[in-house]
Design a protein around this nucleic acid. Structure first.
Lengths: 226, 226
DNA sequence: TCGCTTCGAGTCACCCTGACCTGAACCCGG
DNA sequence: CCGGGTTCAGGTCAGGGTGACTCGAAGCGA
């Protein structure tokens, strides 16, 4: 058996804040790219699954426990790292606003707007761009928006997620009609109390299935794709 | 730096024969799973890109040079291989019927119907199943059908590809209307000669872009998947 | 020439979509 | 207490795409 490339795992994290997409990055404390911002990640342990590694590294470095975690792509071009051949299995994750609060925004972890990142280490700028494209793609015909929301939510909140990701405003009435016709959402019967104006109804997702898909469940779902 | 898992590359190949999907498999000549059928592949060389490795191994073991090659998924569960931790970057490919002819169907390489495979080595059954799901998915809103066809083709041939992959018949008239409205196809002006019945017109794809995508081009395309 | 088969084009009802409108419910200020 | 402002909820309406279907055109073979 030949000598094998180094195998790493990284994760692109998205969270919604002020109707915009934000992503946390960690400061590199070693060469190469010392002091540059990079995706959280690390080496794959011999007796640990890839997704498990991604989740563990995420928790260790950013204190985040995402509600959605899926493999994005495996990057293995030669020359990705100046220190030798590295193959990175990259995951992407969604976290809710309340979960994002836990992540300390200190000197080693900082949140950036996903569409205005600084120059990152390695090929991480390209990776985040691809993750953004995949997020927008999947949002179009799937129900990943769930990953950004809590257990219950109003239609305005759900619409806000779609608007933030798509970068465009949506007609509230038409959005309501479509999402209700889809059937993946159901009203809880309760309403928001205390806020101004007419109190909106609360909704809940029917298919609680989120977090980790992979090829196991993929064929069983009626999702599309991408 | 810790000890790293072994890194392999495998490829699921699809070809159209007699209106059905077929896939070539290779016989394993070593342990583990000796003499069992498996996906073609091999170890990643230190100075070779992942996709390049997939294409090279494909050519070496099956004499196939696919018109379409894309990364499918990275499988890295512990326990995939009884001989130790192996992480496999799996690609999937499409070949045209004339290309598939070159692949020798001998004792070490054999073609199987994609929906009726024997018990394969490792977790390769699951991998092929996922590749099939992805193919059907991508066929729905993309123009990958090109990978199965030659430079020019009739609408009946194109429809045959969709019918074979989707496993259902399509209305010829409606299929024509939709695919022509899509604009990804254009008539060459020529017609088939010599065959029975009314001679059908020949068409050609407008966007010649096929073979290898990856995150580089993905964000530039208006594709969805995936 | 007639019959058969496939190709190419057209029709029609239906559903989904986007744009728009109206009333309901609530808070707040006067 | 009352009316303005704002958001929620539901409905209308025209336009475009889809599926099911029909019909003539074009070629081959008996």
């Amino acid at each position: 058996m030949d000598e094998h490339p180094s195998l790493a795992v990284s994760t692109v994290i998205f969270a919604l804040r002020d109707s915009e997409l934000w992503t946390p990055l960690v400061r590199r404390i070693r060469q190469p790219y010392q002091d540059r911002w990079a995706l959280p990640g690390g080496w794959v342990a011999p007796q640990e699954g890839l997704e498990t590694t991604a989740a563990r590294k995420l928790l260790e470095t950013t204190q985040l426990d995402p509600t959605y975690l899926e493999q994005l792509y495996c990057f293995g071009d030669i020359g990705r790292s100046p220190s030798g051949r590295v193959v990175s299995v990259v995951y992407w994750a969604l976290v809710r606003p309340d979960q994002a609060e836990r992540s300390s925004d200190d000197d080693n972890v900082r949140w950036f707007r996903a569409d205005a990142l600084p120059g990152l280490a390695f090929d991480h700028n390209r990776i985040v761009e691809y993750a953004l494209w995949r997020l927008r793609n999947k949002m179009a015909h799937s129900s990943i928006a769930h990953g950004f929301l809590g257990e219950t939510f109003t239609l305005a909140e759900l619409r806000g997620v779609h608007e933030a990701v798509r970068g465009a405003t949506l007609d509230p009435a038409n959005f309501r009609r479509q999402v209700l016709a889809g059937g993946s959402i159901v009203p809880t019967g309760e309403h928001v109390v205390g806020a101004s104006h007419r109190p909106p109804a609360l909704y809940r997702y029917t298919d609680a299935t989120l977090v980790d898909q992979g090829p196991l469940l993929a064929s069983a779902l009626t999702d599309r794709e991408d």
